[in-house]
Nucleic acid binder design. Structure first.
Lengths: 340, 340
DNA sequence: TTGTAAGCGTTATCAG
DNA sequence: CTGATAACGCTTACAA
């Protein structure tokens, strides 16, 4: 243990025989006489002085912190965003406050309110469910925020969104090119943003491709491996069964692979499987998984850059921007067979 | 946009016709006349008042934040810790400030200094390299900190460590039971804490098992998939080659599986493979990977609990504690063959 | 129960 | 270049 209470600017001023203003100047690189600087630094060093960031924040009204809020940081999609966001913020001189809300809208709203309390200077949030209450809270924000995920038109905050419509189109076209016709779809909850979008996109893309949607081959569950496993087991019971499976995320697809393997079906020979999000799991699974990349990493990076822009120019700047990141299909063994 | 400047306690006091003390009391649940409370809340609501957390922090000298510093949050081991730490802190009323230092000792030291600057009330850090400078900085800390990973004896901070010695022992015993004798070892950098420990532990365990260490079957690289791939390619060139491979983490093991597959070797028939850390990758790979769990999640949880204890009882409490989390072996297809 | 006033540790203005 | 001094927004004695 060092001293009882940590020294403040006042302590140092007394010890160095100067005013607190001079101490402050030294630590802010403002012009001071060399002798003054020497004495201040000596005293500071001797007493172990460290500037108090909270006091500075109170004066400057900036915390140098940015909050990042997601439903579950264990989810590889959010992790991919985080990995891009963190270095961008750090380079901009901001610390990252992480909120894992557990998909609880109430907690997301708490985070939004925290912004008002000045816990952070800005916020990046990726809400899993966009309720009216959430939107109202977002609209009332007084500090800059960026939402990752789609927002209704007219929202007042910057918005970086994926294009699941095009993404699913890419996947279905790929499957159609492989001659697949009976395409099953395993989705997550329809009251979540991605769930709803992916459902709409699936039906639109099927229609566009002239493929009929067999409701018996559409399954809704959670965005998890279990759901993929159970849903696939059920779909395999039908006849005729699916010759391809589009899964609304990679976890579901992994579960599907488990079920297909357990049922002795060949992938992609009997059933081709496509995941979504192109997480690192896709490259590791067996067989490796063809997946629709919705550009999570890029969305994270763009969101962070957008926020830094806003932070730099407090009030001015363009009105709410909408950035859409282009998807792309990453073809691996679960559809292309041969190579792995 | 709401009003220009956000209202403060003073604004509300004036609007409600009471003193700032009364406003403060209302927002802190201290006893006030019902009528006073009504007027304050009405004014606050009308003007959109939100208490400023920074000002509160300055008075209370607590930020309600805890910093968590790791080399790379993309690393599944650190992610596993984070996933446990986050909810524990949240339940304790603390926000989590995440630092991903990129294995840079300088940056780790910056984080340590940030604690002094009162960015956070406490710190959990998992240093990849324990240098003298880092130790000195840790020793000088004035706020509570917990180190995940081994520290030299006599350190002044709480320490939650893994037991790689026992872990590697478990793995080698398992391989020996399977009749493997020529056991290769692919490790990460020896100047990192885990690298050094795992090297020592490997040699000790081999000696204990009466197995000779063939230096030609020991390879040191990075804790990454590439290293596993390259190292394994090289080890396979030797003759006699290895009949088992112990990899110092799961990423290395995945690279080893790649190389074995590319070389047409059967796993575990020709070569058994064991990883370390038991990350989620182990359950997904092909074949699924036997791995030594060093209890990352539990280490994270214990660290967070320890820190909360310290935070609750500022100065008292026991001297620096050392907690060792027991490892265990998770057997999967890369050694046991049959089931997957 | 309520108000006044003194801090918390900085930064910044304004005279010297 | 330097020193008083007034904020920043809040909590908390201490009086009333």
């Amino acid at each position: 243990m060092r001293s009882k209470a940590s020294p403040t600017i006042t302590t140092i001023a007394e010890a160095a025989g100067v005013s607190i203003a001079s101490v402050s100047r030294v630590f802010n690189g403002l012009p001071v006489r060399a002798e003054t600087e020497r004495r201040v630094l000596a005293a500071a060093d001797r007493l172990g002085y460290v500037p108090n960031a909270v006091a500075r924040s109170l004066k400057s009204n900036r915390t140098q912190q940015v909050a990042f809020a997601v439903a579950d940081i264990g989810n590889p999609v959010y992790l991919a965003m985080l990995r891009e966001i963190q270095p961008v913020l750090k380079a901009g001189g901001y610390r990252l406050v992480l909120h894992s809300t557990g998909a609880d809208v109430g907690e997301e709203i708490e985070v939004l309110r925290g912004l008002g309390r000045r816990h952070a200077d800005g916020l990046i949030i990726s809400p899993i469910r966009v309720t009216g209450e959430l939107l109202r809270e977002i609209d009332g924000l007084t500090a800059p925020a960026v939402v990752i995920g789609s927002l209704p038109d007219g929202a007042r905050v910057d918005n970086v969104r994926a294009d699941s419509r095009t993404g699913i189109d890419l996947a279905l076209r790929h499957l159609a090119d492989l001659g697949r016709r009976r395409i099953g779809f395993v989705n997550g909850p329809l009251d979540t943003v991605p769930g709803r979008h992916r459902d709409t996109a699936f039906r639109a893309a099927m229609a566009r491709g002239g493929l009929p949607v067999d409701e018996g081959l559409v399954h809704v569950g959670a965005f998890q491996r279990d759901t993929g496993f159970e849903a696939t087991r059920r779909l395999l019971d039908r006849s005729p069964g699916p010759d391809a499976l589009l899964c609304a995320n990679d976890l579901i697809a992994l579960g599907a692979l488990d079920a297909l393997r357990a049922a002795g079906r060949d992938v992609p020979g009997d059933v081709a499987v496509v995941g979504m999000d192109d997480t690192e799991l896709a490259a590791v699974s067996w067989p490796t998984l063809t997946s629709v990349s919705l550009g999570s990493a890029e969305r994270g990076r763009r969101a962070a850059e957008l926020l830094l822009d806003r932070l730099r120019t407090p009030d001015t700047g363009p009105p709410a921007q909408v950035i859409t990141v282009a998807p792309h299909l990453v073809v691996r063994a679960s559809t292309s067979g041969g190579d792995r």
